[in-house]
Design a protein around this nucleic acid. Structure first.
Lengths: 176, 176
DNA sequence: CTTTTCATGTAACAAGTTACATGATTTG
DNA sequence: CAAATCATGTAACTTGTTACATGAAAAG
């Protein structure tokens, strides 16, 4: 359901094609709201049918550029102001709950893996930060706030995992 | 896909009915992996058909108690050891990306709302901590690690939101 | 002229949500 | 005996994933 609003929100910055949006999702939105090519094209079709978007230009190879309509902007604002974010799933944390199915050594390994994963992720976010050409648009402005969030989240993830690994009783080897 | 492993993992602690599992999801797993009643019953049926669970007791009102089979435990371990967690969606953060659709006052309001939300969530986690009767099982042990994660996450959320609100330029009123 | 990039669309399937439907047992 | 709780199941719908299918245009 949120994908539709992501599309409306991005198109508020200016018209774009499905292909353009696909690229944007691949780089900057992937960590926040992953979407596949097929989903994007399908959703753009529905949004245009509903009058929230309109095709405002055609290019080579069947390229279609979509623009946000007044109705689309109104619907985006309504969503932002009048609806609550839905609870989200955290698969790595679900796995923590279930770690009792493994030996303590394996559980420690998983937590160490989470710590390394956080470090890798932090590097990826730094790279993204350097890679994106931030402009003066709202998406860049708020995108930087979201990026800072990602960095803090990964720092916290790493610290928690390092702490959690010390909580598992027993020596470093030979349990269960 | 993860729901099936959540069910297998919980049943590793001991047999339970669909109803029991439903309660557990409502209280302690809701923040990590929400699941509906219909989803749980459907999945239990599939898991039993696949031989990963078996019905080991019947009670009043058609109650069925499921137990983890050896195949089920093996499949749970395989998932934990050999598969990668999938990327997860963060709707509140998607909304941050799209805040340019609102006035700056409204954007600040949203961030302030996120800060309050984090505080409320922290309180709810403290209440949960006090409410749950932690036993000596693995689910309790690892559940406490996950709970600590939740507390740290909410603390970070609140700090980030308080910082983010200061990043939005302009006086406290009268823009856009 | 071959490969890469641009560009769209759809079909089949899996996962998750909402709503409906039913009824036994326990508690006050 | 009325209300709350226990207990299960399924149908319709929405959302998301994987895979297939096609082809124009640009770059080397």
């Amino acid at each position: 359901m949120s994908l539709r609003y992501a599309l409306l929100g991005i198109l508020r910055e200016g018209p774009a094609s499905g292909y353009d949006l696909m690229q944007l999702f691949k780089v900057s939105l992937h960590n926040t709201w992953p979407a596949t090519q097929s989903q994007i094209y399908t959703e753009l079709g529905k949004l245009a049918d509903a009058g929230l978007l309109s095709v405002t230009a055609r290019g080579p190879r069947g390229r279609k550029e979509y623009s946000l309509t007044d109705d689309g902007l109104a619907e985006l604002r309504r969503w932002l102001l009048e609806t609550e974010p839905e609870p989200h799933r955290n698969e790595p944390m679900l796995r923590v709950f279930l770690l009792g199915a493994l030996t303590r050594d394996q559980a420690r390994e998983y937590l160490t893996y989470l710590e390394k994963r956080a470090a890798r992720f932090t590097d990826a976010l730094e790279a993204l930060d350097a890679d994106v050409d931030w402009d003066n648009g709202d998406l860049s402005f708020y995108g930087r706030l979201a990026l800072e969030y990602g960095k803090r989240l990964q720092a916290m993830n790493g610290e928690w995992a390092a702490w959690a690994v010390t909580q598992i009783p027993g020596a470093a080897a030979g349990d269960d």
